[in-house]
Amino acid sequence: MELIIFYLAAVVAVGGGLMMIMQRNPVASVLYLIVTLVAIAVMFVQLNAVFVGALLIIVYAGAILVLFLFVIMLLNLRGEKFAEKRTRLDRPTRIILAVAFILELLAMFKQVAFPGRMDELMVQASPDFGGARPVAELLYTKYLFPFELTSILLLVAIVGAVVMARRDEKDKKRGI
């Protein structure tokens, strides 16, 4: 039963990811990305990391992707238009990225595909792995510095966005 659910979730996740990049319509892309995220959350739940799975849905599916949709709706992107813009650097960049990606995949397969190697790589996780307490403990001890750095980065991004979006004094006087 667990295996069936895992394979279902895996197929949905990979299929959703593929469909996401193959869509011309940006709204459909976002929807497929949500499908992928939910499938990945299912896998986390299966690994007993229920807390991580719930966070994935709350933060990514529930907040970040809503903002994506919001922007797409505000700009009224209906596909087609922005698929045609190509620059001279497009082709080489694509080839380099694709080759790098394939090499990465091959390296991954080499790691796991040999019999017996898998057991070596897998570590027995503690039973409450991925729960609220262990995640919080790691976040506030071992990874405290990167965690705070990330928050500062986000703060800078927010302040930057506000500054860029602020209206000029001239506009204010004209009451726009």
């Binding site: 229920v50 807390f51 719930a54 966070l55 849905i57 709350i58 599916a61 529930g62 809503v66």
Partner: peptide
């Protein structure tokens, strides 16, 4: 009886906005 019951509620609630956004769009 999920041991992260309240998080489940919030996760599902946060998905509810899609129906409204997509209906409008």
């Amino acid at each position: 009886d999920l041991n992260i019951g309240i998080l489940f509620v919030f996760a599902v609630t946060s998905l509810g906005v899609y129906g409204i956004v997509l209906a409008g769009w």
